[in-house]
């Protein structure tokens, strides 16, 4: 297993190097910092979503769920819209990135915990109902957000819209630093929980029997998930393509690959593996889209396309088995 992790790490280093070096012409002093910032942002987002998705799949006990599938991404735009709605676009743009991040993080974590609690209560163990309810609640949050956006002034509407797509082009240095701290803290927490998460994969009752009652672990894991997703989305915007699609499937692709590369229940291996794959997909994907194919489409659209197909495949395969 460790050999595979090393191979992944090499692959990640390779794609990062290629991302920095390919087509590096013109004023290097200008392009280099720009590319480095973008690389750091991609890396942070990839790791954050990967780790959050692994945690989420462990505490829900199934492998086709992701936080964004359950509407966590939609919450981000909702919080933004609500902020613009209450503060006005002038007041909103007066907020420093640090304050905005803190506000977003708090609101998303609080709402995320509520959302998850509601979903778990509604689903009561039925996985398909949980996913479906989650997707529909995600659609509902999106619809309410859009409704709110129409109620604010059309000019202010522009402010929100420019913020609500995943974007890796303009990244504020302070925001990057704050997010980096949040991602490091979140990842550290996840790592700290790794053995307890292993026990949870046995199911709720067996875990209780081994002295690891799921309830407290659920809360800790959820807090970590909210922290990571909030950090990723406020850094780069939600990863959903903004089209018809119910949600981003990025986390799903990452964990599906991670389970293929390292088929284990041990989070000590699964977590780093997923984190590496998350980085590789975002950086490598951006490299391919931007430098090699020269496509105008954001990477997220392609991820949604492939991810949706992977989701259907996993769902239908599970049934066949």
């Amino acid at each position: 297993m460790p050999r595979r992790l090393i191979a992944l790490a090499l692959l990640l280093a390779l794609s990062a190097a290629a991302y920095i070096l390919i087509d590096l012409k013109g004023p290097v002093a200008f392009i280099l910092p720009y590319r480095l910032t973008k690389l750091a942002a991609l890396m942070l987002v990839g790791v954050a979503i990967a780790v959050a998705t692994v945690l989420f799949q462990t505490i829900t006990g199934n492998r086709i769920l992701t936080p964004s599938l359950m509407g966590f991404d939609a919450l981000y735009v909702f919080v933004l819209t609500a902020l613009v709605h209450t503060l006005g676009s002038v007041g909103f743009s007066a907020l420093s990135p640090g304050v905005l991040f803190a506000l977003n993080l708090t609101a998303m974590t609080a709402l995320g915990l509520v959302l998850f609690g509601v979903l778990m209560r509604l689903a009561r163990g039925d996985m398909v109902r949980l996913v479906l309810t989650g997707i529909v609640i995600g659609l509902l949050i999106r619809a309410i957000t859009e409704f709110l956006q129409r109620l604010i002034d059309p000019n202010e509407f522009q402010t929100v819209q420019s913020l609500s797509f995943a974007r890796f082009t303009q990244i504020d240095g302070v925001l990057l630093a704050v997010s980096a701290v949040a991602v490091i803290v979140g990842t550290g927490l996840a790592w700290h929980l790794r053995h307890r998460l292993d026990v949870l994969s046995l199911g709720q009752e067996a875990a209780t029997g081994l002295g690891e009652p799921p309830a407290s672990l659920h809360r800790l894991a959820l807090l970590t998930i909210c922290l990571l997703v909030a950090a990723a989305t406020s850094l780069a915007g939600p990863l959903s393509s903004g089209g018809f699609g119910p949600a981003s499937f990025f986390g799903l692709i990452v964990t599906a690959f991670a389970h293929m590369v390292t088929p284990t229940h041990r989070h000590a291996i699964l977590l780093p593996c997923a984190a590496l794959i998350g980085g590789i997909i975002l950086i490598g994907g951006q490299l391919v889209m931007e430098r090699l194919l020269d496509l105008a489409t954001p990477l997220t659209v392609v991820i949604e396309l492939i991810g949706g197909a992977v989701f259907l495949y996993l769902l239908l395969k599970r049934r066949a088995a």
């Binding site: 089209g243 018809f244 699609g245 949604e304 396309l305 949706g308 197909a309 259907l312």
Partner: peptide, 12 residues
């Protein structure tokens, strides 16, 4: 829903 989402992504 996911099938619709995938086609939606093709559209985008």
């Amino acid at each position: 829903l996911v099938y619709g989402g995938v086609i939606g992504a093709v559209v985008t």
